[in-house]
């Protein structure tokens, strides 16, 4: 998968690239709108990560340009503003998702994966573990075709762990994924533990396997061979 990162902040661009390369993406970097415009014109990309606040270029113009030469590409718009209006404009112009700074790289990856799943359709939408089946389209969990009742948050949490299987997810990454940009006053990620406890209880009714491992002091890991 070929990704173009358009980000004027060198430090951030480098970190995103490092992370995505590790995840086996083929990455190009554009630090200015001009560079991006040139790269878009000659290369076919699967994903374009675009910081809308470029100093030399109107980010929204760049989307228009890319839609012409790279009509297959998916856009994730990165914004430091998080402004509602930009959000709407971005979606209107065909941005597939948006991320407000600061975001965790894992969250970025999960957005890319979500778009990919949408792109490749149903065959990859069901993830199996043991006799469980997680349907990422219908957003529900089954055990031997028997539906398991999960709350919205429990589903979100479980699917995030499953999709990032064998990777340690820290509490903050999980909190960010579930609560997003909540403007709550406190920053208490311990509620994650409550949800994990509930999910484990529900899974253990069907299966003895301890799918979700606790990583002390950090978070959780979904283990599967």
């Amino acid at each position: 998968m070929r990704v173009l990162i358009v980000e004027d902040e060198k430090g951030l661009a480098a970190e995103i690239k490092e992370f995505l390369v590790k995840e086996e993406f083929n990455c190009d970097l554009a630090l200015t709108g001009k560079e991006a415009s040139d790269l878009i014109a000659i290369n076919p990309y699967d994903f374009i990560l675009l910081d809308i606040g470029l100093p030399d270029y109107n980010g929204l113009d760049l989307i228009k340009e890319a839609k012409r030469s790279n009509s297959e590409a998916y856009f994730i718009v990165i914004t430091a503003r998080g402004e509602l209006e930009d959000k709407i404009k971005g979606f209107d112009l065909g941005a597939d998702d948006y991320l407000a700074k600061p975001f965790s790289l894992l969250e970025l990856l999960s957005r890319i994966q979500a778009i990919t799943r949408r792109k490749f359709g149903h065959q990859s939408s069901i993830i199996q573990f043991g006799n469980f089946a997680l349907d990422t389209i219908k957003k529900h969990l089954e055990f031997d075709n028997k539906a398991i009742d999960l709350t919205k948050k429990e589903y979100k949490l479980l699917s995030y762990l499953v999709l990032n299987k064998n990777r340690v997810l820290d509490r903050l990454q999980l909190t960010e994924h579930i609560w997003g940009e909540f403007y709550e006053d406190d920053y208490d990620s311990n509620y994650i533990d409550v949800h994990i406890k509930n999910i484990r209880k529900k899974l253990s009714e069907f299966d003895e396997t301890n799918w979700i491992k606790t990583v002390r002091g950090i978070g959780y890991k979904f283990e599967i061979e």
Partner: peptide
């Protein structure tokens, strides 16, 4: 506030990369 978000974003990405 706006200017602070970009450096925060850089630090967070660095920490994410270290953690992986």
């Amino acid at each position: 506030s706006h200017e602070l978000l970009t450096p925060i974003s850089i630090i967070q990405s660095k920490l994410d990369n270290i953690l992986s």
